[in-house]
Amino acid sequence: MTKDWYAWHADYDQPGSALSHRLAELRGRLRAALDAAPAGPLRVISLCAGQGRDLIPVLAAHPRRDDVTARLVELDPRNVEVARAAAADVGLTGVEVVAGDAALTDRYADLVPADLVLACGIFGNITDADIRATVRHCASLCATGGTVFWTRHRREPDLVPAICDWFAEEGFTPVAVSSPADGVGVGVHRFTGTPRPLATGVSMFEFVGYDRLTTPDRSRGDHCG
């Protein structure tokens, strides 16, 4: 049975839920990054963007909103429509919501290297090897001085320390990483290296889904929540 990634978003609206805590933490980190961003145009990409609940409300209320050109990529058409409506309702003409596979590098070729890269709701739903590969691709997606935002649960086995090591190997320095006690698993890393050319025609990861990662017969998960 394929997980319903549209219904999955309902937990964001439940006070006290892990997702609502994660969302609040992530929005705060996004605001801080926009506050600190240099003057001029800003490029933002969001992989597996869902309904855009992390980015769109932050941009709507931020003084830099008109400096931002953003692309949100999401496979579930219902989530795409919600995100498009949300951006239109607050007049974010620079925000584009694309329906498609967020793992494909070609989706971002004309907007990278970007100032903000959101890879949220992904690392808990793909294999460890694909997490490593995605971190490697972040060195092509992110501009020097830009910031990557990512999420991963802190349950055992806790992969967050390894993910931080992988980011370090690719030229990123940590800005903030939530502790196991926080439970919400939000990471923020700044890129200090030189962006590598983005490989074209490449799939960065296969979205399996957390509910299927431990099953012997893993079919491809087609929705990025």
Rank of each mutant, 00 (worst) to 15 (best):
M1V: 15
K3V: 14
Y6P: 01
A7D: 10
A7V: 02
H9F: 14
Q14Y: 06
S20F: 05
R22K: 11
A24E: 14
E25L: 11
A39P: 09
L47Y: 05
G52P: 00
D54G: 13
L55W: 08
P57Y: 02
L59F: 07
A60V: 11
A61H: 09
D66S: 13
D67P: 03
L72C: 09
E74D: 11
L75E: 09
N79I: 06
E81R: 15
R84N: 04
D89H: 12
V90M: 09
G91K: 14
V97T: 01
V97N: 01
A102M: 06
L104E: 15
A109E: 15
L111F: 05
P113A: 13
L118G: 10
F123E: 01
F123C: 03
G124K: 07
H137M: 14
C138N: 06
S140T: 11
A143H: 01
T144E: 12
G145K: 07
W150E: 02
T151H: 06
R152F: 02
H153N: 13
R155M: 12
P157K: 11
P157R: 12
P157M: 10
V160P: 03
I163P: 00
E170Y: 05
V175H: 08
V175S: 09
S179W: 07
D182I: 08
V184T: 03
G193M: 00
T194I: 04
L198G: 07
A199P: 11
T200H: 15
M204I: 14
M204Q: 13
F207C: 08
V208A: 12
G209R: 08
G209T: 13
Y210I: 03
D211K: 10
D211P: 04
R212M: 10
T214C: 10
P216S: 05
G221Y: 08
G221R: 03
C224I: 00
